[in-house]
Each structure stands twice: as C-alpha cells, then as structure tokens.
C-alpha cells in the first residue's frame, strides 16, 4: 500500500530524490544459486548505503531468460535492478543460433558493477589415471571422442569453458549435459563421466576428501584455495574464463541515479558483512566499476559468442 502510494507520488511530482522508495533486485534464478547467494548480502549492504529497503525477488525460468527479459523491459528508474551471472552473455547467442527472437538483448542492460569472478577448475574423478592436463590431452588424442565430460547444461557456464579448452587443445570428447552443478558433480563422482569444469566452491570438499583431482584452472592467476593447481595459461593454453556475477539495471538510467547506484555498489562491495558472506560461499570478490566492467564485459561476451557459434547446433552433428 505504502509502496503503491509512493510510486504514485513519484510519477505525479517526478522530482523525488533517488532513492525514495524500496528497490527490487531481480535474481533470474531460484533461491540458493550463485546469483541468489550474491544478491542477498548485496541487498543488505545496499540498504545501508542507500538508506532504503532493498528486496531480492527470484524470478526463475528458462535458464534465467524469464527474469532477465522482465528486467530488460522494466522502467529504467533505478528501482528495478538485477544480479545476473555469465549466462547473460550467452543466452542471446543461443537464441540467435536457433533463429529465435531473443528473449532480451545484451544492450538492453547497463552494468553497474561486477561483483565477483571465479575461474572454474577442471576436476577428474580419482579412479582415472591422469595426474596432469598433459596426460589427459594425450589420451584424448589417442582416443578421440571416447572420454566423457559432464556439464551443468548445454551451452551453460561449464560447457563453454570445456569447449574452449577442447578447441585450443585440438581434441574431441563426449559431452554429457546434466541439469546443474550438483548433478554434474554426481556424474563425475559416480564415474558416469570422467571430468567437468566445476566452480571451485563445489569441487573443494571433494578435492579435500580425495574423490576428485584438480588438473587446471581457467583464471589468469591461481585460485587461492588451490595453490598447487596450475592455470591453463601456465600450461600453454591462452584461455581465460570466469564464472562471474554483476549488478545490472535496464539501460538509459537517469545520470543522477546511475551515479548514485555506482557509488552505492562500490560502498556495498567494501561492506564488511558482504565480504564475510562472499568468503563463506567461497566466491572471491572481483569488483569492477561500471566503465571498467563495460569494457571487460564487452570483450568477454564477444569471446563467448564465438564459442557458442563454434559449438553450433549439437543435434545436427
């Protein structure tokens, strides 16, 4: 009721200082995923920075397309924000691949800040004998298309980095798509697939218990929790890939609102509670302000678009 009244008041007088009513952060995934676990502590930190309630609203469906579409067409007034992950770059490319009208376009959003970024780690089940990436690649050369890798889903955040690696190494493997990070881990633990590109947080307990072995990571530098695991760059593959989350808004935000949100995001990322929450879910903070983020995102999205095109329509191969 209050909200409705405030909204009405805003539209009548139009000159209210931003923010003067509650802000919603849309998370286009169900509760409990990486985007959700980032958005909730972020919302609390933004509340402290903006002195207005910040509410997280999960709008899941179609791998995130439903929620992202809703934000793409939302009013650009700074009261509808979104925390999205790397798939924001690839979903429109998949739509394009199949000749579908895209659910949204990347240029319908403006990035306010990149919040965290985490390179996936290549893990194999310990019943397989490969101890290094080199051994794995050599065997894949000898037996093309026979080693199976799992992923969290077709064209998904763990399929893309595997395709990048296979292409760079010039090898072929079988692909077992599953329905998420949990099922992909289960497939590798059960020996139904040999490896997958796992988020470090999911892989860590299994690496510690000796059920999985890490061969490489996709980052520019090594993962803090895995100091002995080399990066692909060290191993001679010029590849980088990150699982990241960023704060977005519909494009054409009023300049004043944009400025306020950038400042608030910077403050929120420095917030002690937010940092503690990110540390608990083992998501390393990798803050970029809007300009830096835009340049980085454009470049990253271009690479990923190329990967999606290269994967092509799987059913026609």
């Amino acid at each position: 009721m209050l909200v409705a009244f405030a909204a009405l008041a805003g539209s009548v007088w139009g000159q209210e200082p931003y923010p003067s009513r509650p802000i919603t952060i849309v998370v286009p995934f169900p509760p409990g995923g990486i985007a959700d676990l980032t958005a909730r502590p972020l919302a609390s930190a933004l509340e402290r920075a903006l002195r207005q309630p910040v509410v997280v609203s999960n709008k899941a469906g179609a791998a995130g397309a439903v929620g992202m579409q809703s934000v793409a067409i939302a009013k650009a007034d700074g009261y509808t924000l979104m925390v999205a992950v790397v798939s924001i770059s690839t979903l429109p490319e998949v739509d394009a691949l199949f000749g579908r009208a895209p659910a949204y376009r990347r240029d319908q959003f403006v990035g306010i800040a990149r919040l965290n970024a985490d390179p996936p780690v290549l893990v194999v089940g310990t019943e397989w004998r490969w101890r290094t990436l080199k051994e794995l690649v050599e065997e894949a050369r000898k037996r093309p298309g026979e080693i199976t890798y799992a992923s969290s889903g077709l064209y998904g955040a763990s399929h893309v980095p595997m395709e990048m690696l296979l292409h760079a190494a010039g090898i072929r493997m079988r692909h077992l798509p599953t329905t998420g990070g949990g099922p992909a881990t289960t497939a590798v633990l059960g020996g139904h697939a040999a490896l997958w590109a796992s988020p470090p947080a999911i892989a860590l307990p299994h690496l510690k218990s000796g059920k999985l072995r890490a061969l490489a990571t996709w980052g520019e530098s090594r993962v803090a929790a895995l100091p002995d695991v080399p990066t692909l760059k060290e191993l001679g593959y010029d590849l980088e890939y990150y699982l990241w989350a960023g704060l977005f808004a519909p494009k054409n935000l009023p300049a004043g609102v944009f400025k306020t949100l950038r400042a608030a995001a910077r403050q929120a990322v420095g917030d002690a509670d937010f940092r503690a929450a990110m540390a608990r879910v083992e998501m390393p903070i990798a803050y970029q302000d809007a300009d830096e983020f835009k340049a980085w995102w454009d470049k990253d999205a271009l690479i990923l678009a190329g990967v999606i095109k290269r994967i092509g329509k799987v059913a026609e191969k």
């Binding site: 509760p31 218990s209 879910v281």
Partner: peptide
C-alpha cells in the same frame, strides 16, 4: 551432493553459513 531440488536448497543454506557440505 544434492539428490533433488529440496536437498539442493538445503545445501545452499549450509554454504551460506560457511559449512561446506561433503564427505567430511
């Protein structure tokens, strides 16, 4: 490992509290 959607939500809840679910 989550054996369905509900355990997946419970696992997320553990992670939020810094408990890393796993064999240990």
């Amino acid at each position: 490992v989550p054996s369905g959607p509900i355990p997946a939500v419970m696992l997320a809840a553990m992670m939020v509290h810094g408990v890393s679910p796993g064999p240990l």
